[in-house]
Design a binder for these strands. Structure first.
Lengths: 158, 158
DNA sequence: ACAATAAATGAATAATTATTCAAATGGGAA
DNA sequence: TTCCCATTTGAATAATTATTCATTTATTGT
């Protein structure tokens, strides 16, 4: 029903922390979390999240989230972004990122490009980015998504 | 029959150059190359090659070879290896890589780690690596595999 | 609020992929 | 060679995943 977001977040959490090799398996883990739904919907959710199935020596194939951080070769953009990032605050379910002057557009572009479902969109000024999160996505969900995009930010949130 | 190697090489070639989203599709492309076999075997071949199925905006999901070059963060090892690489020659179906003094073990380790099916194994001295290719794998197949492992070598073979 | 429209979901089913089982093939060792 | 054992393969089938279709639930416009 109205808990699609909850499901998507749970799926991300489960497959980042566990080696899951089938939808049945994932489904039962979700059910154990109180999120009961069907394989048909799970199939659609996985497609929506662009989850990949990759070779694993132990389990044959397992589900894996798409790389959210900038692709190989974009380490520069990434550390540039980390450098320009100042802070993030939330108000009324909206996020506001403050950056060093001029950094906002490129950091916002990085977010847009990696396109995590938690963040519907961004609007960048010069040193401020407005983050519009998906419904029912918590502040920490947004922050976790940000960390996946710019791993160097992790230490700022410990 | 005895053309497993030919099949594996053909699979690698096809999925690096085409977006293929099902085994049926891949099978028909292989047949067009004169390599006729069944879906059952293809399934096994894909598993053997550790081929992943990843999200693709155009075709939903497509097959992709595992990253053969050193993982993110190993660019250093990679360019170190490229720097130490001197030459490769073949004799009696064996490859002999000459390296700068001391480089052989680490370059061989890189090859072993990425473990392409074309190369069964390596033996490293100080400045020489013996490459034992898989049966029926040609010299250029070995070289192509090497380039996937150490992309910077590409220019050496043009 | 109410209709109209769109989006999400489940049940059933279709499509796809993996595996089982049996047959064929390919090496060694004597 | 010939036997033995391991590997490869195909046909059939099982298992898994995607989609269709009908229904329910949400959203939008008035």
């Amino acid at each position: 029903m109205g808990n699609r977001t909850e499901r998507l977040l749970a799926i991300k959490e489960i497959i980042t922390n566990n080696k899951v090799s089938s939808q049945e398996e994932l489904l039962s883990m979700l059910v154990r979390k109180g999120l009961s739904y069907t394989q048909a919907t799970l199939s659609r959710d996985l497609k929506f999240l662009k989850v990949n199935k990759i070779s694993d020596p132990e389990k044959g194939y397992i589900y894996e989230l798409p790389d959210q951080h900038a692709a190989l070769g974009n380490e520069i953009a990434e550390s540039y972004a980390a450098q320009g990032f100042v802070s993030i605050q939330f108000a009324n379910h909206l996020g506001v990122i403050k950056t060093l002057p001029g950094y906002a557009p490129s950091i916002a572009a990085l977010i847009d490009r990696s396109n995590p479902f938690e963040i519907i969109g961004t609007i960048a000024g010069d040193d401020t980015i407005l983050i519009i999160p998906h419904d029912n996505v918590s502040e920490s969900d947004v922050i976790n998504a940000m960390i996946l995009i710019i791993p160097e930010l992790k230490s700022r949130f410990d």
